Simulated scan of single mutants.
Amino acid sequence: MIRIDRLNVRLPGFSLKSVDLCVEQGEFFCLLGPTGAGKTLILESVAGVVTIAGGRIVVSGCDVTGLPPEGRGVGIVYQDCALFPHLSVGRNIDFGLRYHRRSIPAGRAMCRDLIDRLGLASLLDRSVTTLSGGEKQRVALARALATAPTVLLLDEPLSSLDPCFREEIRDLFRSLHRETGLTVLMVTHDFTDAHSLAQRVAILNDGHVEQVGTVEEVFRRPLTAFVADFVGMKNVLPVRVENGIPFIGDLALAMPGRKGHFRHAAIRPEHIHLLPAGSDAMSNGSFTGRITTISNQGFFAELTVDAAGVIFKTVMLTSSLVVMDLRQGAAVSLQIDPADIHLI
């Protein structure tokens, strides 16, 4: 497990601000957030490769705050793999053994098992400069695991890979985690990684944690406007409440029983459905508006609609757009199920 208590790191122009985080034993945990939010800095703080200004880091029950990187029981895989170009694949994999207490024979036995499991046996004498992106990531993973760490840290390990390799390595991470029970902390900006690998996630923003929870909790029930926008709720709109009724601009939301002091309404674009204005299928509580832009993305189109001065973003299949003959400037009805409106 990993426990981070009030972690502070100060760099010129940026700092981590009293970050608290707990990753359970055997959990696959993802750190998400925009570029520059501090995700990699948290990873490097756990690994011991940056100097922290305050706080405590516990790994597998041991306070490692003052320990050097090789004494923390942590393996790390970077986005660019960080392999040694002057060493062969085999020498890259067993490089870290000399800095750990594990005996060389036991370590080499572990390496042989990893080499077989990761399909690297035929590559051992090759220069790492001749490898594909997927092969390099497998070598970097073998090197990180060769010292038998209790925690594996992954820093955007899939972002530089071609799509054909990305799913291969994602499947590899999934199977290794299932087979070994390793505690994994992964930095990523890809929602697919979070949905397919993580049990829980944390969303970072400007050096602090905005929300922690299961993937479903964070993506379906964001706690802040920032998290809602980050996880794809493209419609994050200011709300005011009058006599218990939430309003977006002059549009009243038909949401009986939803009481509270709300500041924003968040709606995913796919939850806003368009019909030609005056359609027989129009329901109570629907809004009328006019299409202001259409961006064709191939199989689907992104649209913006102006409804009484409120701009909504939605998506629909291109085929449906053609069938309904919806064009820029067309009058439409916006259908939104109240259950799909998330009040913050």
Score class of each variant (00 low, 15 high):
Thr224Ser: 14
Ile336Cys: 00
Gly213Gln: 02
Phe14Val: 13
Met255Gln: 11
Gly249Pro: 08
Glu302Met: 05
Leu152Met: 06
Ala146Gly: 06
Gly134Val: 07
Thr35Arg: 02
Val151Ile: 14
Leu275Arg: 11
Leu334Lys: 06
Val310Trp: 13
Thr130Ile: 04
Gly73Phe: 01
Asp94Asn: 07
Leu274Cys: 08
His271Val: 07
Gly289Val: 02
Cys164Phe: 05
Arg166Cys: 05
Pro69Lys: 11
Ile272His: 03
Arg108Pro: 02
Ile42His: 00
Asp280Glu: 13
Val89Gln: 04
Gly55Lys: 03
Ser60Tyr: 09
Gly75Cys: 04
Phe287Thr: 00
Lys39Glu: 10
Gly119His: 12
Gly71Asn: 11
Ile42Ala: 02
Asp5Met: 14
Asp340Asn: 11
Asp63Gly: 03
Ala331Gln: 10
Thr314Ile: 06
Leu176Phe: 12
Cys22Ile: 10
Leu303His: 04
Val236Tyr: 00
Val209Met: 07
Pro338Ser: 08
Val77Gly: 13
Pro157Gly: 10
Lys313His: 13
Leu141Cys: 10
Arg6Lys: 14
Arg240Ala: 08
Asn8Ser: 15
Val227Asp: 00
Ala252Thr: 01
Ile294Phe: 06
Thr183Ser: 03
Ile104Glu: 03
Asp5Gln: 15
Lys259Glu: 13
Ala109Thr: 15
Gly73Lys: 04
Leu154Met: 05
Lys136Leu: 06
Gly75Asp: 03
Thr293Val: 07
Leu197Glu: 09
His86Thr: 13
Val305Lys: 11
Met233Pro: 04
Ile344Tyr: 12
Arg263Glu: 12
Val215Gln: 09
Ile341His: 07
Val239Tyr: 02
Ile336Leu: 00
Pro68Met: 06
Thr51Glu: 15
Ala225His: 11
Leu7Gln: 07
Thr292Asp: 15
Arg240Met: 06
Ala148Gln: 12
Asp116Ser: 15
Val49His: 03
Gly309Glu: 06
Glu210Ile: 04
Gly289Phe: 02
Leu321Ile: 12
Ala254Trp: 05
Val215His: 09
Val74Ala: 03
Pro276Tyr: 12
Arg240Val: 15
Val151Arg: 08
Ser159Cys: 00
Gln25Pro: 08
Cys81Asn: 14
Pro276Thr: 08
Asp125Gln: 14
Leu172Gly: 02
Val218Pro: 04
Ala265Leu: 05
Ile2Cys: 03
Pro68Lys: 06
Ala254Leu: 10
Leu161Glu: 00
Val310Gly: 08
Thr304Tyr: 05
Ala339Thr: 14
Arg126Pro: 09
Met1Ala: 14
Ile341Trp: 03
Glu270Ser: 06
